[in-house]
């Protein structure tokens, strides 16, 4: 009687201990993880103009940024005398499918006052709007932001490049795809002034 009671007690204690240790371990791991995440340096690797960068889905090379009076690469000046900020870049689709999500690759941060969001991407080869990039065919592209009339032109532009990672099977449909957008690099580009033309 006593022996069986003792055995039962031992079992209960050991099972409680297991549960307790497991719980503590899980707690330690998660808090360690969040600590690590919090400790992650907020400093992004710097990207220099002209240097290539693999941002997961895209490979990009930033070139010069400049102020211009042209709203599109081939065009005559905009009639209302508006100013634009143009940035040239080389971009290649590294994924295995034609895609048009390149509009989310670059973010102006900190935001420049007077710079309107949603820039237009121009394909310099066609001097037409870029609607999709084919895998393995790099293209020279011009990104054009419109400046609100009367706004002060920025002297430098800080751009954050957002990268994505490939998952062969996603969690919902088990289909391959690109996920987890994350800043991977930051570039500070000087903005050259508008070309002085008569």
């Amino acid at each position: 009687m006593i022996v069986s009671w003792l055995a039962g007690l031992r079992q209960a204690v050991s099972s409680k201990l297991t549960i307790g240790i497991g719980g503590l371990l899980a707690l330690a791991i998660t808090s360690g993880q969040s600590l690590l995440e919090a400790l992650e340096p907020p400093v992004l690797p710097a990207l220099a103009a002209g240097a290539p960068l693999d941002a997961g889905r895209w490979r990009i090379v930033l070139h010069d940024a400049r102020l211009t009076t042209q709203s599109r690469p081939d065009g005559s000046p905009a009639p209302d005398g508006a100013q634009f900020l143009a940035l040239d870049l080389d971009i290649a689709n590294r994924s295995s499918e034609t895609d048009n999500s390149f509009v989310r690759v670059l973010t102006v941060d900190p935001p420049v006052e007077g710079l309107q969001p949603n820039p237009t991407f121009w394909l310099l080869r066609d001097k037409a709007m870029l609607s999709a990039l084919q895998p393995g065919l790099p293209e020279r592209v011009q990104v054009v932001w419109r400046l609100t009339p009367g706004a002060k032109a920025p002297e430098r532009l800080r751009l954050i490049v957002t990268g994505q990672t490939f998952k062969p099977r996603d969690n919902l449909l088990a289909a391959p795809g690109w996920f987890n957008p994350k800043p991977v690099a930051a570039a500070i580009l000087p903005v050259t002034a508008a070309e002085a033309k008569p």
Binding site: S96, E97, T98, L123, D126, A128, S131, A132, Q134, P135, G136
Partner: peptide, 10 residues
Amino acid sequence: QGVRFVASPR
């Protein structure tokens, strides 16, 4: 190689 090219919008 399995790469998918959508008909060109150009």
